[in-house]
Simulated scan of single mutants.
Amino acid sequence: MLDLTLAVLHHILVFGLVAMLAIERTLLKAPVIETRRLAGLDGGYGLTAVLVLAVGVARVIWGGKGWAFYEANPFFWAKVGFFAVIGLISILPTIAFIKWARATKANADWQPDATAVASARRWVGIELLLIIPLVACAAAMARWPF
């Protein structure tokens, strides 16, 4: 039962990550950028990513397949690699969102320039695209060895 609970929680958290990224990307299309909302949402995204990692580690340690399955599974390591790359990429928009929120706090009418918004939107889009191979690795991992 623990294995099932951890799997369900892991999946729900991953769906939450995808939803938050999609919302961030949508907010970055708006004519007026809600900088504080973006920063808050991105904070939730970061917290959720930490929870995904923690639950994933719990699945590896206490889940039904055991460490030996994951240790030898190339798709597990590829999935971990994609997760790490997505996490590293997410640093760039996060820094921008924090700076933007601070600037808005100092001046309520302040807005980031279009180039900065386009850059943040591009990075968030890349994060979303990288979720596709991450999910493909997760599916392959679960079925390994073929």
Rank of each mutant, 00 (worst) to 15 (best):
A142C: 06
W62D: 11
S119E: 04
I95S: 07
D109G: 00
F75G: 13
W100C: 06
L129N: 14
E24T: 03
T5M: 12
W77M: 12
T26K: 08
A58Q: 09
Y70I: 02
A72Y: 07
V135S: 05
L41W: 08
A139D: 06
I86G: 04
V117Q: 12
L47K: 01
E71M: 07
V124W: 05
L4S: 11
L134R: 06
L129H: 11
V55M: 10
L88A: 15
F15K: 09
A118Q: 15
L28K: 11
I86N: 05
M20S: 04
L51C: 05
L38Q: 02
A101T: 05
L128Q: 15
F146G: 05
T104M: 05
R59D: 03
Q111H: 08
W144G: 06
A106P: 03
P133G: 11
R25H: 13
A116V: 09
F15G: 04
V14F: 14
P112H: 00
G43T: 03
W100A: 09
A84D: 02
A101L: 08
I33T: 13
I98V: 15
H10K: 09
R36H: 07
I12Q: 12
L6E: 13
I33Y: 01
P74V: 10
F83K: 13
L28Q: 08
L130H: 03
I98F: 09
A72I: 04
E71W: 05
V117K: 13
A114W: 02
G81M: 09
A138H: 06
I95R: 13
S119V: 09
